[in-house]
Design a protein around this nucleic acid. Structure first.
Lengths: 224, 224
DNA sequence: CTTATCAAATTGTTCAACAATCCTTACATT
DNA sequence: AATGTAAGGATTGTTGAACAATTTGATAAG
């Protein structure tokens, strides 16, 4: 995931200008720290510290902040700085409302893309393998990808982007929990959902999906 | 920037005390020009011209560009500048795919907010009045608001924002058409949709809405 | 007619300075 | 003691200039 850019460790010059802008490079680093828990929700991101650490100008850093702000990972308060977003219970409820709409519409469709179903099988296998080896963080990643592929059944590029953003937001609250307890219950459920989709049993799939989302929302809201 | 006072000759002057950032102020002006047709799709927005006209620095203007780019109203081509977005037929089709999902889910819900139904009645009345007075541009605005309220039946803040952005995008192609021919057919349809919703006839409303969206999409795609 | 090369114009990025705002601390008043 | 107010220090907001990189258009050579 790390692209060539300015100094990876310190003491390194940055002779190359990458195809992507410097701001996107900085944003990628910050995004990783936020989604992987290095920066806890509520943390303040001071411009001074980060310009020194990332060795980019203040303007570039602020552009990176802007990018992550539009992804709802960072929150920008006027004259007060930038903070890692804190999800409220209302936010979690809202996100699951949207997920029910998007994923519900996806599984209800009659024309299912065989390629997407193949992708689902692959992701499920990936999750099983990770679970067998105890890599529960990877199980979580696979779970998110599973639902991203579900959403893609809608066949809309805009829906894909909305879904990706929703799941990125959810990561903010995921890494405050135990990955095993959070994701283990959904492994068999995802597998069953896949078989229902494969069999063309739309209504059953919709009901199961709805139950999955309800349960996930309950688990997350229980942490508050 | 010599004097911050409201002494500019004409046009939009910067407020004496800006509560929001300068970048958002500039973005608001450009957004208005784009959504109201002052800037046609495909137009280039040169940095030199706009920094002189708006009297903001290049950095601030570029931040405004960034904001509108994330709203999909402007398109940023590397080393080539910023252009008013041009919607492709695929874009229109995708937007209507999302609208069918969002608005379809909205009318299918059983728990309808009485306040929202009242808002729908108000918007329909507003559209009728504008039509009677020949203000077809306002009819178009009312039509968009009608569907925004429909979407709000989902009860999700994020869905509301998604819908607002979709409709802003659609305005880009609306301006290239005759407002009367575009919006007149939907006046009675919206009224009928409202009565169906009021009567709690969800499935009928869903069918009618689906027909409305199909027709609108056909009309828009016919312009290409 | 095609291709190569150069110069002008525009955008990409960074920097340093100043202005505006917020937060803390200390002081004064009741 | 509680409340309100006034520095001041720290941080963010905005600007203008400078230079690098890229595109564009014109010109010249094959």
């Amino acid at each position: 995931m790390s692209e060539p850019g300015p100094s990876d460790a310190y003491g390194e010059t940055r002779p190359f200008r990458v195809r992507s802008s410097t701001a996107e490079w900085a944003a990628a680093i910050l995004r990783q720290r936020v989604t992987e828990g290095g920066l806890a929700p509520g943390s303040r991101l001071a411009e001074d510290e980060l310009t020194a650490e990332l060795e980019v100008s203040r303007n570039t850093l602020r552009e990176a902040f802007s990018l992550l702000g539009h992804e709802r990972l960072l929150e920008h308060r006027l004259n007060r700085g930038v903070y890692v977003r804190v999800l409220s219970p209302a936010d979690v409820a809202d996100i699951y409302r949207v997920r029910r709409m998007i994923e519900g519409a996806a599984v209800r469709r009659a024309d299912r893309d065989p390629a997407a179903l193949a992708a689902l099988r692959e992701v499920v296998a990936e999750a099983d393998k990770a679970a067998a080896e105890g890599r529960w963080s990877d199980v979580g990643t696979a779970d998110l990808r599973f639902h991203l592929v579900i959403a893609s059944l809608n066949g809309s590029e805009r829906v894909n982007m909305m879904m990706a953003q929703l799941l990125a937001e959810l990561r903010l609250v995921f890494h405050t929990m135990d990955p095993h307890a959070l994701h283990a219950p959904f492994l068999p459920l995802n597998r069953e959902l896949l078989t229902l989709l494969d069999a063309g049993r739309g209504p059953d799939a919709e009901a199961l999906l709805s139950a999955c989302l309800d349960q996930a929302e309950r688990v997350l809201l229980a942490t508050y």
